[in-house]
Every structure is written in structure tokens, then in C-alpha cells.
Amino acid sequence: MANQKKKILFIINNLHCGGAENALISLLHVFDYTRFEVDLLLMKYEGVFLHKVPPSVRILPSPKEIVFFDMPFKQVLYKSIKGFRPDILLARLFYFFYVRHEPVPTIKDQKLWRALRLCLPKLPNRYDVAISYLENIPNCYNVDKVTATKKIAFIRNDYDKLGMDPKLDRPYFKQLTALLTVSKSCEAILHHHFSDLPIQIGTMQSVFSLDTIKVMADEPIAEDFSGTTIVSVGRLYPQKGFDLAIAACSILVSKGYAIKWYVLGEGSLRNELQQQIDDLHLHQHFFLIGQKENPYPYLLKATLYAQTSRFEGKSRATEEAKILQKVILATNFPTVNDQLKHLENGYIVDLTAEAIAAGIQQLLDNEEIREKLKDTLSSSQINNTKELKILYDIIEN
């Protein structure tokens, strides 16, 4: 009699165009469906990657109660009374008094779960392993609302730089089988806060579908990539340092460099960043071209890739630029050395607009450095097998 497949659940907020979402899609595409039966729960059923979910994965209905936290209170009051859901009304009131005035966004998300859990039902399905693939709400939902023999949670960033409150996470993390992150530097931070908990803390780096990346990189794009082009990928949030990128672009243009710098991503800072572009008269040099489902043609055609972040866990876009053997400039954020070695496979600069501009100037002016970086990347390999084994071992052993 054949062994019965283990039932696995993955949980994430949505499938918008972000590093965690892209990483999950790649993981699902290389997952072993001869051994595992996989469900996917999205807290909200939305995102440009929805159609990329493999047919072997069953997408579960999203919790309908979450939309009540995006509504005006009067609408919540009406709908909760009409639907005989006083628990939703209670949860929104609790949210108002407990969460609303929290100034730190990540702590606000941590506290938001305390309100959400009052009205979200438990998931009726039972699983061998439940894997929440992003910090905060997915991890909390995994612990409070899922029945599973093992529970694995991911922190996909630098925990300290995220500004999380460890006291709020401890009661959740201690109920896990394993807490995983994306780099050894990020793992060390988790050990610092949670090594006393009776759980496994480890690193599982993202997996990549190399053939898919290379095929998708050959697709056409509308933008003009003639001349010197720089590409950056990321949400338009303070973390990504695009304000520094714009200032660096201004410095380079003032020195006579005819560059075009394209940023792929959307976010809350779009208007503010566009105003900065306008104020510096960079409308012919710096472009916020929005979220792109397929960033790879932009990476492939770019003269160089720039990661101007203030902090990262392990930047997926940087790894993809490495796969496509692009010249990479990165700021010296705390975990950058988990991905790049200066003058070996990347060029690392201080976290200032002046240093970013000087680094780009050096790369553009010095072909020898560019060729050395490319040569290193051409001889390096991505090994998905090792990373998948880390996850499979936790699932099965």
C-alpha cells in the first residue's frame, strides 16, 4: 500500500508583487507533489501572482471577516448587526481602542491580530504541517486558527529593523515547531531574542526556478533601455531607500551622466517620491514605472542593478540579478554580506546618496571592475536542493 501524502498548508497575506510572494510561488513550483498534498490560504484573495499558483495547489476561501477591518465603522456597524455578527463589531471596537493609535506599523500589525482573532473562525481542515510564509498575521493565524501536527513560521526580514515587539511574538513563537528566516544574519537576531524557546530556529533561503527566470527574461518590454540604464526593484516604502536613489541620480546627472533609472514597484511613498523627482527636474532620468509581474526583462537589459535599501532580510531581487549575471550595487545594510562580497560579486557602498552616486560612477567608468563582477557571477550556482531539504526534513522528521 502506497504511503499517504502528507497534508501541507501554506499561509500568506496575498499574492501581490513582492519578494515573499514571489518566493512562495517559486517554492510551490518546485515542491514535491508526489509526497505532499498542498493547500494555500490567502488572508485576502488578491494579487498579480494568483494565476501563477501551480494547478496541484488548492486555494482555500479567504476569511471573509478581514474585509470588515478595511470598512468605515458605520458600514461595519450596519453589516455586523444585519448579519448577526456581534463578534465582528466587538473586534472592530477593540481594534479602535487597542490598535488605532499605535505609531509603529509593524507593532500595529502585531496588535491588529489581537482584534482579528476575536471574529475569525478556526480553519476546519486538519493538516500534518502548516507553514506561514510571512511575519505577523499569517504567523498568528497559523498558531491560533489552524489545526496541524507541526507548525512552521517564517520571518522574511531583519527582525530588529522591522521594529517588532518580541513580547507580543513570544507566546506565539513558543507554540511553533520551527521558526525560519532567510539568512544567517537574520537567524542570529532571532536566536538573540528567542533562543530560550523550545523550538528550532534556522535558515531556509529562497528557492528559484532558474529555467523560468531565463525564459521570462527574454520577453519584450515597452520602455527604452538604450544607453545607460539602472534598475531597482521593491515596494515604494522607506525601507527600500528610493529617496536616496533619486538624490544619487541627481548627483550623477549634474556630473553629466545620461542615465535612465527605472524603479519597479508600488507603495505608499509614490506621490512623495514623484514630487522629489519633479523638484530635482529628473523626469527624463528617474522613472517610477510601477509594479511589474515580470521584472526579469528589465533586469536583463539593465546596465546595472541597484539595491539602495536601509535594511533587508535577504533581497530576492538581488538574488535574481545575480542569476542574470548583472553588475550589482548595494548599500551596506546590516545583512548585505549574506548576499554580496564587495568587489567579488557586487559593489557595496555606504547608505548615503553621495556614496551611491560615487559607487555607480565607479562602476560606469571602470569596465575592468564590471567584468570581474560578471565573471564571478557566471561561475556561481543556485542550489535549490539544499534549501528544499531543510524544509522537507522539518516536515518529515
Rank of each mutant, 00 (worst) to 15 (best):
D375V: 10
I382E: 09
T149V: 09
Y257M: 12
D375M: 10
L77S: 10
I137G: 02
R370V: 03
R126W: 07
D87S: 15
N142H: 06
I107F: 09
S206C: 09
A248E: 01
T352P: 04
Q291H: 08
L329G: 07
N22F: 05
K145G: 04
L179V: 05
P138I: 02
F96Y: 14
D279T: 15
D350K: 13
T147R: 12
I12T: 11
A91Q: 02
L77A: 13
P334T: 04
T203D: 07
D144M: 12
H192Q: 14
N142F: 06
Q4P: 02
V207E: 01
W261I: 03
Y257W: 15
T303F: 07
P138R: 07
K145C: 10
H29M: 13
Y95E: 08
D338I: 10
A130L: 01
R310Q: 00
P72W: 04
Y172P: 06
L340V: 03
Q175L: 02
L89I: 01
G202D: 06
F225I: 08
K260V: 06
K108P: 00
Q361T: 07
K184M: 07
M43R: 15
I11F: 02
H192K: 12
S379M: 10
I66A: 04
H342T: 13
E344I: 10
L364P: 02
D39E: 04
D393T: 11
F333M: 08
F154Q: 12
S379V: 10
T385G: 09
D87V: 03
P61A: 07
